[in-house]
Design a protein around this nucleic acid. Sequence first.
DNA 1: TGCAGCATTGAACGTTTGGTCAATGTGAAG
DNA 2: CTTCACATTGACCAAACGTTCAATGCTGCA
Lengths: 204, 204
Amino acid sequence: MPGQKASEAERQIQILKAAYDVASRKGLDALTVRSVAQRAKLSTGLVLFHFTTKAQLITALLDYVLETTTVLHVTGDITDIPVALDRLLALLRREMNRLASEPRRIRLFFDFWAKGFTHGRIRSKMQAELDRYREAFRPIAHDVLQAEPERFAGVTPEGLSAVAVSFIKGCAVQSMIDPQGFDIEEYLAATNGLLGQLAVGATT
Amino acid sequence: MPGQKASEAERQIQILKAAYDVASRKGLDALTVRSVAQRAKLSTGLVLFHFTTKAQLITALLDYVLETTTVLHVTGDITDIPVALDRLLALLRREMNRLASEPRRIRLFFDFWAKGFTHGRIRSKMQAELDRYREAFRPIAHDVLQAEPERFAGVTPEGLSAVAVSFIKGCAVQSMIDPQGFDIEEYLAATNGLLGQLAVGATT
DNA sequence: TGCAGCATTGAACGTTTGGTCAATGTGAAG
DNA sequence: CTTCACATTGACCAAACGTTCAATGCTGCA
C-alpha cells in the first residue's frame, strides 16, 4: 500500500537509523539497499528515492557515525581534576572504557576507516576526524607539559597528543578483535607506571 | 588453449601472488575470482579448481599475508644495543618505519582485521597473530623493567608489551589513512621524551 | 604410437546487487 | 468532492558475482 507520507527529514533519519543498525551489526559489506529497506520496513525504491544512490547513503551514514561517535567531549568532571597528568590519564581511561561499552559503534567506525583505503571521499573524512580527535587532546597535553617543563623537555603538545591518540587507537585495534582478552586495568596500570608515578611525586 | 600444466604447488603460489597483488592494490572488496584469474593470466575455472572456493582462497591469502608481514624479527643489530630501553625504542622505530615502507602490505593486514569483525575464522587468525606479535615484545619489555625496577614499579612485562604494541598499531591507524601527514620523528621524539630521557640519565 | 588421467578452458547458470520506472495511493489545496 | 503534487511501491533490468561442467588439450607411460 503506497502512500503513508512522512516529512523528508523524518524519513531520512528513519532510513539512516536502519542503515546504522544493519552496518553496525553485520558490517558495511552487508549494507545493501534492500537490507536497509527491509529493516526500515520500507520499499527498496524509497531508500533510493531519498538518497539517490547507495554511495550517498553510505556517505550520509558516515557523517551520522562521525557526529555521534568519535567526538571527544571533555566534560566537567574531567576538567575539574587539578593535576594535568591525572586529567590526561582520566581522559585515556574514559576513552578506553568507550571501546568496551560501545563496541559495535566503534567497529563500524573502523569498518569505514578500512574502506577509506580505497575510497577517497571516505578517507578524507576519516582523516579530518582523526585530526579533530587529536586536536581535542592538545589543550590537556599542553597543560601536562607546562606543569613539568623540565621533565618533558623536547616534547611538544602536538607530539604528546599524537602519542595519546595512537595509544587509544591501538587499544581499539586489540579490543575490537578480542573484546574478552582486553584488560583495561592492565593497560592503565602500565601507562600509569610509565608516566604517572614520577608526575605524582613531582606535583605533590 | 587448455593444457600447459604446472605443478600443484607452483600454480597455488602463482594464484596466491595474483590474489595478493589485487587485494593489496584495490582492497579485499575487489578480490574477485575473475580479477585474480585475470591478473594471473589464467581462467576463472582454474582458480577454483585449485582452491575449490573463494572463501578458501581468502583464507590461504590471509595465511600468506600473516607469514610474510607481521612477524617481528628481532635482528642482531637490535639485540646488540646495550641499554634495554634503547633496544625497545630502536624496535619501535623499526616497526614504525615498516608502516611507511610497506603501506600496501599493512593496509591489507588491516583490511583482513576489519573483515574479522564479522568472519569468525578470520578473527581467530588475526587474534592469534596479534597475540604472537605482543609476545615477541615481551623479552625486551622484561629487560627494560629489570634494568630499572624501582622506576617502573608495578609495571608488568605483559603490560609494557601490550602498551608498546598498542602504540605501534595506533600509529598504523594514523599512518594508513594519512601517509603524508605521518611524522615518525615527531612520534619518536615524544616517546623518547616521555620515556627515554630519564632512562638515559639513569644508565649512563 | 596410442591411451589414460588430469590440468585447463570458457560458456553457462542461478543469485544478488544497484538502479529505474510506470502505477498507485495520500494529503492538502481549491 | 475534485484535483494535483508527490511520496511510495514492487516488478523489472543489466551487470557482476561465485560456482559448475562438458569439452579440450597436455603429458607421462605403456
